[in-house]
Write a protein that binds this DNA or RNA. Structure first.
Length: 692
DNA sequence: GCAAGGTC
């Protein structure tokens, strides 16, 4: 009887693997905080344990803050990321379960990162078990797939995939950490105050895309064009119509159309009708959920992701970090819909779907994910959700139900009218079958436009025709949703990291605003990188890393060779950078100074009206407060600040008194938005208690 | 203190 240890990527997967493989009962053996399951299958006694994503991370071998650093090693992740403090005890638990085992099996997600996660666990937490470990390969976490993966597991780990994964980690570390340090070193050596600067394979090309868009906007020359709008009178009704040729590029042409047609009689020259079938929207992958929540609620993608992760931990929705738009039948559609039916918000809709008599078959999208289905509700009763949590949940629940509903159908009628040699078009749209749009309301909208019934040859009087001058618009700024779509299109980052990387760009002060603009500092970093490290701002680096990973995976290259040749290439660049560091940092130091100045400027002084309010730290007491830059010319305005927490300036103004608002973070879970006016009416009555 | 990637 063999004692087998199966290593999964995350706790939820470990539980599924355990229950899928068990022939008898499953026993929890890991204690309260650590998931581990004991079961038997055939002659084997199996223990299933779980990693927690990456339990090991790269760190430099040397100590100190010099660069360039090329000598790196894998360490327990709690050594380098204090948010992963749990990892230490977690690894110990895995080691304990490994002691009694004589066979080891990797059952992490069947992708590069998953293969590497299991490899590191087996190698470091299971005393070199990677050498003899086997690999289960599966594409879904269904019982059927997992049993097949167990029965047909390969006799060794996928060594070249693991090597490709290690190469990706090492390349990202070496480029990212060293270039970030180079920027910071150069900046401080040029006399700047200490400031965190960063660069990386994903964040820098993303910033560069925003920077290029900014330049496109600045360099845009508006070209004039004219739009001709008309109101046509057909069958005794006035309907809006547009010029059939679209926009017109000269004023004389526009004037000609208006002169010829305004008030003139014409004729209906063609009527065509068709039915437009509008299928339900596809189920949510994380990116689509993020963009839909941005569209309807204005939530930045990182906020949607955090809310979705919370809903997942509360077992209300499925795993949100998925790129799948598929809902496999094994989810149990009816069970989920019946669960939703217990919620009175969805009772009517869910019941209708279950009892419609039509088979439950969802619309599905093209995108897939090896490890997870599309984001969907679990059917557990969602109660007492906060407003924002509810909105995201509601969107997910309704999107799920909509996927099972009928297609919507519209009747579209195009009416072409001729007025001399000029043609105009009017379009009518009527909803024949609402279908899924009822289930997705209020997030769905089917446009309608009524047209009277007409036939060819009917009179059509152009009751009014006018032209309007317009100018071509510059390309639009990215917003938080479109920049993430850009990253996805360009293959930058993953579904789990894109939103976080955009957040990093904000946190560094490289970008600002909802319609994203590059700050002076962001532009300065791009200019510096382009001069000294052009490769890092180009998405070509990602293409190259992908190509190298493919070569390693295919056995055509070895990780060590790739690393040695890459380091050889970049070593020289770093040496050149160090020798020129002073010059490289000059521009940056100025920009960092300006940024810090901006960061502590609260706004115009409400007292003297000429000075600016700033966050000031008293040299005498060490305490911080808000004071006016006009102090030397006599303005004595001050306002107190809390001495604890991180204070940042916001663009908000108090709704009651119009004074600036500062944000205080790090005192409990919420951001404290504080009006700086001590006499503000919002502060009357209940004062704010100490805690937060 | 720095990347990008996984996870609760």
């Amino acid at each position: 009887m063999a004692k087998q240890l199966i290593v999964c990527e995350k706790p939820s997967a470990a539980m599924k693997v355990a229950y899928a493989l068990a022939e008898g009962s499953v026993k929890r053996v890991g204690g309260r905080l650590f998931p581990a399951y004991s079961l038997t299958r055939g002659q084997n006694a199996i223990t299933v344990v779980s990693a927690l994503g990456h339990l090991y991370a790269l760190d430099q071998r040397s100590v100190g803050w010099s660069y360039p650093v090329f000598d790196i090693k894998w360490v327990p992740i709690n050594d380098v990321d204090r948010r992963m403090a749990r990892a230490r005890a977690w690894i110990d638990s895995i080691s304990k379960h490994a002691e009694g085992a004589d066979e080891f099996i990797s059952a992490c997600d069947y992708d590069t990162e998953g293969s590497l996660i299991a490899y590191n666990v087996l190698r470091y937490a299971c005393r070199g078990a990677d050498a003899k470990a086997k690999r289960m390969r599966f594409s879904t976490l269904t019982k059927q797939d997992l049993v097949a993966a167990y029965e047909g597991m390969s006799s060794e780990l996928d060594a070249t995939v693991i090597e490709a994964g290690r190469a990706r980690h090492e390349l990202d570390w070496i480029f990212g950490v060293n270039v970030s340090r180079a920027l910071m070193d150069a900046q401080t050596m040029a006399g700047g105050c200490y400031e965190v600067l960063s660069a990386g394979r994903v964040q820098s090309p993303t910033l560069y895309a925003i920077y290029r868009r900014e330049n496109g906007i600045r360099l845009h020359v508006p070209d004039p064009y004219w739009v001709i709008a008309a109101e046509a009178e057909i069958a005794g009704e006035r309907v809006p119509a547009e010029y059939a040729e679209g926009r017109v590029l000269s004023l004389s042409e526009a004037e000609g159309v208006t002169r010829r047609c305004n008030g003139a009689d014409g004729v209906v020259s063609r009527v065509s009708g068709r039915r437009a079938v509008i299928p339900p929207p596809v189920p949510f992958d994380l990116g689509t959920l993020q963009s839909e929540a941005y569209r309807h609620f204005g939530f930045p993608p990182s906020r949607t992701q955090k809310i979705a992760e919370k809903l997942y931990l509360d077992a209300l929705i499925s795993y949100p970090r998925t790129s799948s738009q598929r809902l496999p039948p094994s989810l149990g559609y009816a069970r989920i819909l019946e669960g939703l039916g217990r919620n009175r918000n969805y009772a009517e809709a869910a019941t209708e779907l279950v009892s419609s008599g039509r088979p439950l078959r969802p619309r599905e999208g093209k995108k897939t994910d090896p490890a997870h289905p599309a984001v969907h509700p679990t059917g557990n009763l969602a109660e007492g959700l906060g407003r924002d949590d509810f909105r995201v949940y509601d969107l997910i629940a309704k999107r799920f139900m909509a996927a099972f509903a009928e297609a919507a159908v519209k009747e579209v009628t195009d009416v072409e009218m001729s007025c001399g040699g000029d043609r105009f078009l009017a379009r009518g749209e009527a909803v024949l079958i609402e279908g899924w749009s009822r289930f997705y309301a209020p997030y769905s909208f089917l446009r309608e436009a009524r047209l009277p019934k007409v036939s060819e040859g009917d009179p059509a009087r152009m009751a009014s025709v006018s032209h309007d001058a317009k100018y071509t618009e510059p390309p639009p700024r990215f917003n938080q949703s479109s920049i993430i779509k850009f990253m996805e299109r360009s293959g930058l980052g993953t579904k789990s990291t894109r939103a976080e990387i955009v957040d990093t760009l904000y946190r560094r002060g490289y970008i600002s605003g909802g319609m994203i603009e590059v700050t002076e500092l962001g532009a300065g970093v791009i200019t510096t990188l382009k001069r000294h490290f052009p490769r890092l701002v180009s998405i070509e680096l990602t293409r190259r890393v992908e190509a190298e990973m493919e070569e390693i995976e295919g056995g055509k290259a070895r990780r060590e060779e790739v690393m040695v040749s890459t380091i050889d290439e970049v070593r020289e660049t770093f040496e050149r950078m160090i020798s020129k560091e002073g010059g490289m940092g000059d521009g940056l130091a100025e920009l960092v100074k300006a940024k810090r100045e901006g960061d502590r400027t609260v706004g115009p002084c409400p007292s003297c009206k000429t000075g600016r309010l700033k966050v000031i730290r008293s040299k005498k007491s060490g305490k911080r407060f808000i004071g006016c830059s006009g102090y030397s010319s006599g303005c004595r305005f001050t306002a107190p600040l809390p001495q604890k927490g991180r204070v940042s300036v916001s663009k908000r103004r108090c709704k009651e008194c119009g004074y600036p608002i500062v944000e205080v973070r790090g005192l409990g879970r919420y951001v404290w938005r504080l009006c700086i006016n001590v006499e503000c009416p919002t502060k009357r009555g209940a004062g704010r208690g100490g805690g937060g």
